[in-house]
Amino acid sequence: MANILGNLNRALMVGGILLLIVALAFHAPDIASDPANWANWFLRFAHVLCGILWIGLLYYFNFVQIPTMPKVPAELKPAVSKYIAPEALFWFRWSALATMVLGLAIAGSPPQLYLVEALTFQAPYRLIGVGMWLGIIMAANVWMFIWPNQKIALGIVEGTPEAKAEAAKKAMLFSRTNFVLSFPMLYCMVTTYGLAR
């Protein structure tokens, strides 16, 4: 068991196989009779999975890494900045992009087709539209502000000590902005189908 679960790629493969077994066991007739509808549900699953990774890492940065780094002894900080943070930021930025793209694909594909209506806040899609715009802003923050500044702060891109400190501050502020926006964004996403839209 440790041989399988001790390796991330093997654990992912086992999870994928279990997902396939469950999908076929419970939805084989749906897949066969209405593949477009099932594909839309699968897009939703992928959107939520990527969103969990993205927002989970956002919360890791804001609840764990940012508050803990000042307490880490100077000789141990390179372990975080050279190994942990770059890897976490890799998954953070790509899961942000995947979450946004999958969400837009869901809204723009049959049977939904509410992308334009949601993005322009037309009834009954105003609530999901707010959530979509918050998600788009958050994903843009990741790629346009957090990641470029983190590259400088972590030394991936050359910078003076002053430039690194300034970039770390900017990255933290945009990360905190996303942290704050995540609450109304998640509310809009989760309650869209249970409340009046």
Results as ranks from 00 to 15, higher is better:
55 I>A: 11
53 L>Y: 02
197 R>L: 10
110 P>I: 08
57 L>A: 10
30 D>L: 11
194 G>D: 08
27 H>F: 15
130 V>C: 02
22 V>K: 07
120 T>E: 02
190 V>T: 08
153 A>M: 04
28 A>H: 08
16 G>S: 13
32 A>V: 11
186 L>F: 01
65 Q>A: 13
183 F>N: 11
8 L>K: 14
145 F>S: 09
197 R>K: 11
59 Y>T: 04
120 T>S: 06
45 F>L: 12
99 T>P: 06
146 I>Q: 05
96 A>P: 13
110 P>G: 06
47 H>D: 06
135 G>E: 03
10 R>Q: 14
61 F>H: 10
26 F>E: 09
182 S>D: 08
43 L>M: 12
111 P>S: 06
169 K>C: 03
9 N>T: 05
137 I>C: 02
11 A>E: 10
153 A>L: 05
105 A>P: 01
81 S>Q: 10
6 G>F: 09
131 G>L: 04
69 M>K: 05
137 I>Q: 00
180 V>H: 07
157 V>S: 07
85 A>K: 06
60 Y>P: 01
8 L>Q: 14
83 Y>G: 11
166 E>D: 10
143 W>R: 03
37 N>T: 15
106 I>D: 00
95 S>R: 12
100 M>K: 02
78 P>V: 13
35 P>T: 11
123 A>C: 03
150 Q>R: 14
104 L>S: 08
156 I>Y: 00
161 P>Q: 08
16 G>V: 02
139 A>F: 08
48 V>P: 00
87 E>P: 00
14 V>Q: 04
24 L>N: 15
32 A>C: 02
140 A>Q: 07
84 I>G: 03
41 W>H: 09
83 Y>V: 13
15 G>R: 06
189 M>A: 07
12 L>T: 09
124 P>C: 03
155 G>S: 09
97 L>A: 15
113 L>N: 14
174 F>G: 00
166 E>V: 15
117 E>K: 08
98 A>H: 05
166 E>G: 03
12 L>Q: 12
20 L>K: 05
11 A>H: 06
190 V>W: 08
125 Y>V: 01
3 N>R: 12
109 S>R: 09
151 K>W: 00
197 R>D: 07
26 F>C: 05
25 A>W: 11
18 L>Q: 11
23 A>E: 10
76 L>S: 14
125 Y>C: 01
52 I>F: 12
96 A>Q: 08
42 F>E: 06
144 M>T: 14
96 A>N: 10
81 S>H: 15
142 V>H: 04
42 F>S: 09
9 N>F: 12
4 I>G: 07
100 M>N: 04
4 I>P: 01
175 S>I: 03
90 F>D: 12
1 M>E: 12
165 A>H: 07
93 R>S: 14
175 S>T: 14
191 T>S: 14
37 N>I: 15
146 I>F: 12
162 E>W: 12
67 P>A: 04
139 A>W: 05
28 A>S: 13
187 Y>I: 14
45 F>D: 02
80 V>W: 13
27 H>Q: 10
43 L>K: 09
191 T>Y: 05
118 A>L: 04
162 E>R: 12
184 P>V: 02
44 R>T: 11
17 I>P: 02
19 L>P: 05
62 N>Y: 04
109 S>E: 04
61 F>K: 00
120 T>G: 02
97 L>F: 15
9 N>C: 01
117 E>H: 07
154 L>A: 11
6 G>K: 07
